[in-house]
Amino acid sequence: MQIFVSGSLAYDRIMSFPGKFSDHILPDKIHILNVCFMVDGLDERFGGTAGNIAYSLNLLEEKPVILACAGKDFDSYEKWLRQQGLSLKGVRQVDTEHTAGAYITTDKSDNQITGFNPGAMKHPSQFDFSRVPPDDALAIVAPGNLQDMQEYPRAYRDLHIPYIFDPGQSLPAFNGEQLKDMITGARILVSNDYELEMIMKATGETKAQLLERAEVIITTLGEKGSLITERNGRTTQVPAARIARCVDPTGAGDAYRSGLIKGLAMGWELPRAALVASTCASFAVEYLGTQEHSFSLDEFWARFEENYGKPA
């Protein structure tokens, strides 16, 4: 099965400030704020929704096509993706821009200040679907270029390619009518519980009304697992997989989506596919960063069996 993953490719540049931001910000001078924080070095990691989802799918022995834009500083990320054996045929390189980057500074109280440069992500990836066989394809539209997020659902509907719509952190960029158009025809609308509330507020529609547009709504609930709500009224609570330690939950959502796609690609029903999703997410949270976890298929299915019984 051909799997298309549209979204972002980004560098996560993480810095640690050994003090507290609050010690250097004067409340009565906030209107003329001018501060400098000396950090303890910089840690660069590979990230972005498309990169993260594709990375975990690759661990699950799928070879997705990444649909995203990268910039003139893409060399190290490109090398990393090629080392994973991932296709770059859907990655458009924009030589006048930098690859999208998040600059995250965390103080010793875990407060964060983040600057995000969209860079090449401002440009659509412009993938040509004319030679894609619709009977053997699956797609996810994850947060990334806003034009891609609007145009790819239309392309998938025209080609009868089932797709997962995941607006995520891009939600505030769309109005209600745009969201309704992107959701209409989706196989699955996936979001966390807060994002689902935002979607309902923006569209003015209830969950039941959204289910007239998307066949299924999956709501992720962190350590409480996820909830599947189907158009036929059936709901399924999916438990989270047990973990050895929780180090960084940042990449759990993208890993969940990777496992969900893997389960669907295997032809499993949604409740079973969501167990694959929970298992995949459990590996991600045990490591700092979104593409730092690793597992063999034997290790993956051993954890799946430990949590949920033998795979069907």
Score class of each variant (00 low, 15 high):
F116E: 03
N145A: 04
G51V: 02
E44S: 13
F127C: 06
V141H: 07
L138H: 07
I53W: 05
N58M: 11
A120S: 15
L60I: 09
P153Q: 06
T96R: 12
Y103W: 12
R157H: 06
R157P: 03
D135G: 15
I113A: 14
D95A: 14
E78R: 13
Q147E: 14
T49F: 04
Y103M: 11
V91K: 06
I164S: 10
Y163N: 04
A102D: 05
W80A: 09
Q147D: 09
I104S: 11
K108H: 10
S56R: 09
Y55W: 09
A142E: 03
T106L: 04
I113S: 12
K108A: 10
D148K: 10
A68Q: 01
G51D: 02
A155R: 12
E151S: 13
I53S: 07
L57Y: 07
I140D: 03
Y77G: 01
F116G: 03
A50Y: 07
P118N: 12
Q84M: 14
I113V: 15
A142C: 13
P153D: 05
E97P: 01
I66H: 03
K122R: 15
G144Q: 05
A102L: 03
G101Y: 01
P124S: 11
N52Y: 08
L88P: 04
F129W: 08
K72V: 01
G115H: 12
C69T: 14
E151C: 08
L86H: 08
D75M: 02
A54K: 04
E97S: 11
H123F: 14
S56F: 13
G71Q: 05
H98Q: 12
I66Y: 02
A100R: 04
N52S: 06
P124R: 09
V94H: 10
A155W: 06
E97H: 13
P133Y: 08
D128Y: 10
R82F: 01
R92V: 02
F129C: 08
N145V: 04
A68F: 04
A137M: 05
K122V: 11
D158T: 13
F74Q: 00
I140Y: 05
G48N: 07
G85V: 03
T106N: 04
V65G: 00
D136L: 05
Y103I: 09
G71A: 07
T114V: 14
K108R: 15
G51A: 11
P143C: 07
Y156P: 01
H123K: 13
N117M: 12
A100T: 09
S76I: 00
E44P: 00
F74I: 02
R82M: 11
G101W: 01
F74N: 01
N58Q: 15
N111T: 08
S76A: 13
